[in-house]
Design a protein around this nucleic acid. Structure first.
Length: 832
RNA sequence: GCCCGGAUGGCGGAACUGGCAGACGCACGGGACUCAAAAUCCCGCGAGGGCAACCUCAUGUGGGUUCGAUCCCCACUCUGGGCACCA
């Protein structure tokens, strides 16, 4: 790592010395309580940043980028006269921490406080306006007591339930993995393909909220990319559920003329399928059941039983990678036939693993003519492919050498009375027709599934449930919270598929809260995402211990005014937080349905054109840079790199320009005089700058706000002219959100005794900001040829006259004007 | 495969709602100061042509709309990110 030496040597007299002034102001802020928020203060403004997972590596430059961007916005709002709450805490539970603890052989209860302390040290250096009186640590019993309470609230409202479900199991690490720890079907730690295991799990009914979660996306003020990601994740599909009757060989065999086993006595089995294309029903030439489909066993004929069971068992053991990624289609015929409800044709029933049990009904009608996957499957197994939609220019008999999936321009063919209908209309008409015949119903399906919150792990809040033989699953009474996570030495997960807590009778042997008989505690802990799904509700109410969030304070401080964070949390965290908040709203505990009316996703910082990673050796160590340049320079540089919502490339070489700006800011205040009057030209530029910087910060255009201040600095210091206090003092306020330490120091040098953050953002004097001189742009045939100095409110005729009077412009007027385009106050275009 | 971004000098990036392309910064070149160096200050800095005033070309590629396009439309190339057998 090469770091250019800072331009000023610290021992130069009267030079800007960030090390000295930054430690001075850290101490001063603490002593004065500058960052302590008065919760009763006027105009509350809740600035929220995503709390970090305190890794052993310490603060990442990406954390610093996120926090600085929030801090600037928060400080700016304070200067606008708001009472700003800008809290920060630690998201310290979870498998990341636990795995790291296992790796280094230090117990999480020892390791995590150490990491937290190191984070706190680094965060303190960054100059954040954080009110540490209102911090949270998710691993603190005083916090997770209420996480458990949140679980109980959901349980109380029927939104928590338990069922058998598949979990991700890493056979190498011998442990259950969270979904977020499976990357492309591989264990994030050891890259072993993940298997599925069936376990009893607690779920939250987030799917009950799918429609509301989707609908509100239309009006909340969020980054478009984040809203799109949530919409895709929710995955609403409108379509129909169609019913296919499987032929009963006893009653149907003769009439159907199909050889089916006499042993099959399934009776009238009906297979519902979900489709978004009911219009293609006449092209459905076979059915496919997922290998896990409960009816598979019932429909399979004895001839096919061995083969089907072998296929099903293979699928069950199969890892997720080979099942999901670009695999060639496989499948087995069940021996059964079903009736296509549209045309009465008999179609074979297959099972194949390209049909997922988790989505829709776990079965599909295959329309190989108009679905790529069905087409591939039908080709491989020689199943009939029928065209029922014709592209413009095609006829019913145009051969289908590839499937035709387009649903915008096609018209139905080979579909009896529906021939000729456009696809869109046909969807509705076919559904109506089949519904009338009892073979269909309109259905809306979501991709979203219920949220599995069980983790067979140690490092999390124990789920507050007690199992009693007599009373069943009994919630732990609120007065008994928290269920404290015991300090156990053997916290390593094992092959058994149960939590390490299940090895500790002292933990799980408890009396039933209802009947008092011996009972057993739930030994799973809850998902880390539950910890972070409600933390913003807790901050303002810290340190109250009798309620999770005080009703009065919550009403005053929620919803969050501005939330800025990484888009990697676009779906999981941000969706879970909306869900939990919505439940709390329904329970009358929070004032709004949506917790974050405004959310902005910031960009990502890369280094020298590449993603930062340890293996590349291009990780930026914030401590090092703050040592070399000072926190103010690092903060301002991070914001100057590029548009905040897009991120940018961190280059060592470029940081010096920002430091030079702060040096000049320092010098301009040090040398400023109160004698005489400020320069009118400079003051005009100043007021234009105040206007631009304010607008840019509000819109998170931090890079251009800094550029505007630099531009003003160039005017202010041109030719080393001495500056007037009136010219520099407002600039110090403009720079304060970015570089708070130097701003405080300069503010003090200017004779103020209270914090610069207790002052007000300078007002723009529009009269002063106005440019007297104005030049109208002149184009001839759309090409810019020059400018004429005229009055701003000049008329078209006067402007034309001015052009004719200007020799340099007049020479282009080689003929009569065919047309004149005049944009008042902007330009004149003469078309010859 | 699908969805969402992005492509502008040597580099990072500016440009209101379709109206002076290249703000600001870095790097680079020249000059002032200095015994010298650093720092600082000043000037220059898209390409080509011209002694010059100026002219021509230029915002990934090819078309289109418009008096006028970095901006809007169509097709394409490259690139970053997300989702991925979701019926």
């Amino acid at each position: 790592m090469t770091v250019p030496h800072p331009p000023f040597s610290p021992d130069e007299p009267l030079a800007y010395d960030p090390t000295a002034i930054e430690s001075k102001w850290r101490a001063r802020w603490l002593e004065r309580g500058t960052h302590v928020t008065d919760l009763q203060g006027a105009r509350p403004y809740y600035q929220l940043m995503m709390f970090p997972y305190p890794s052993a590596e310490g603060l990442h430059i990406g954390n610093l980028y996120a926090f600085t961007g929030n801090d600037i916005h928060g400080r700016f709002q304070r200067l606008q006269g708001h009472t700003v709450l800008e809290p920060l805490g630690y998201d310290a539970f979870g498998i990341h921490s636990e795995n790291f603890a296992l790796k280094v052989g230090v117990h999480p209860m020892e390791l995590i406080p150490r990491n937290v302390a190191n984070f706190r040290r680094q965060l303190d250096r960054a100059g954040l306006m954080v009110d540490w009186n209102r911090s949270v640590d998710t691993t603190d019993p005083s916090y997770y007591k209420w996480t458990q309470w949140v679980f109980l609230k959901l349980h109380e409202r029927g939104l928590a339930y338990k069922k058998q479900a598949a979990v991700n199991w890493c056979p190498s690490c011998k442990t259950v993995l969270a979904n977020e720890q499976v990357e492309n079907g591989l264990c994030e730690r050891c890259k072993t393909p993940v298997e599925q295991r069936q376990l009893e799990q607690w779920f939250f009914r987030i799917t009950d909220y799918a429609e509301r979660l989707l609908k509100n996306l239309d009006w909340i003020d969020w980054s478009e990319s984040t809203r799109t990601a949530q919409r895709n994740w929710l995955g609403r599909s409108e379509g129909a559920e169609l019913r296919f009757r499987v032929l009963d060989p006893l009653t149907d065999a003769g009439s159907a003329g199909v050889m089916v086993s006499q042993e099959v006595t399934s009776g009238a089995v009906v297979i519902p399928v979900f489709t978004t294309r009911p219009d293609t029903i006449f092209g459905a030439t076979y059915l496919v059941l997922s290998p896990e489909h409960p009816a598979l066993d019932k429909v399979t004929t004895s001839e096919q039983r061995t083969e089907v069971e072998a296929y099903r068992d293979a699928a069950r053991l199969q890892d997720i990678v080979s099942r999901k990624v670009n695999k060639e289609k496989t499948g087995v015929f069940t021996g059964a036939y079903a009736v296509n409800p549209a045309n009465g044709e008999m179609i074979p029933v297959w099972t194949a693993d390209y049909v997922l049990m988790e989505y829709g009904t776990g079965a599909i009608m295959a329309v190989p003519g108009h679905d790529g996957r069905d087409f591939e499957f039908a080709q491989k197994f020689g199943l009939p492919i029928v065209r029922v939609v014709a592209a413009p220019g095609d006829t019913a008999r145009t051969p289908l050498d590839a499937c035709y999936e387009d649903d915008a321009d096609g018209r139905l063919v080979n579909s009896e009375e529906f021939d000729g209908l456009a696809v869109g209309e046909a969807k509705a008409r076919v559904t109506e027709w089949l519904t009338a015949r009892g073979a269909a119903k309109p259905v809306t399906t979501f991709r979203l599934r219920d949220w599995c919150i069980s983790r067979q792990r140690y490092w999390g809040p124990p789920i507050p449930i007690i199992y009693c033989e007599a009373c069943g699953a009994v919630p732990v009474p609120e007065r008994d919270l928290p269920v404290v996570l015991p300090n156990i030495p053997d916290y390593k997960p094992d092959d058994s598929g149960v939590s390490p807590l299940a090895r500790h009778a002292a933990f799980y042997h408890v009396p039933c809260p209802t009947c008092g008989k011996p009972a057993r505690r739930e030994t799973d802990v809850s998902d880390t995402f539950l910890d972070s799904a409600w933390y913003f509700l807790r901050y303002p109410s810290v340190p109250r211990d009798d309620v999770p969030f005080d009703p009065e304070i919550t009403k005053r401080w929620l919803p969050v005014s501005a939330y800025i964070g990484g888009n990697e949390h676009a779906v999981l965290h941000l969706l879970y937080a909306r869900f939990i908040n919505m439940v709390m709203f329904d329970a009358g505990l929070v004032p709004t349905e949506e917790p974050f009316l405004k959310f902005r996703a910031h960009g990502m910082i890369i280094r020298d054109g590449a993603k930062m990673s340890k293996s590349r050796g291009n990780v930026v160590n914030p401590d090092q840079y703050m040592d070399d340049w000072g926190a103010d320079t690092v903060r301002t540089y991070l914001m100057f790199i590029g548009p905040y919502e897009e991120g940018g490339d961190f280059r060592d070489q470029s940081i010096s320009g920002v430091r030079r700006f702060l040096d000049r800011l320092w010098a301009s205040v040090r040398d400023a005089t109160r004698d005489g009057a400020p320069d009118a030209e400079v003051m005009r530029k100043l007021h234009q700058t105040i206007r631009k910087v304010g607008a840019d910060i509000a819109g998170l255009s931090y890079n251009t706000a800094i550029a505007a201040m630099m531009e003003y600095m160039n005017v202010l210091r041109r030719g080393e002219r001495g500056s007037h206090v009136a010219e520099v003092e407002p600039l110090v306020v403009l720079a304060a959100p970015f570089a708070p330490h130097i701003a405080e120091e300069l503010w003090e040098m200017l004779g103020h005794t209270s914090s610069i953050f207790d002052t007000h953002w300078p007002a723009v004097d529009e009269a002063l900001a106005r440019d007297d001189a104005f030049e109208l742009v002149v184009q001839i045939n759309g090409k810019t040829r020059g400018r004429v100095a005229v009055d701003r409110e000049v008329t078209q005729d006067a402007a034309l006259a001015a052009v004719q009077a200007d020799a340099a412009l007049a020479k282009f007027l080689t003929g009569p004007a065919k047309k004149v385009i005049f944009v008042p106050g902007r330009l004149l275009n003469i078309v010859l």
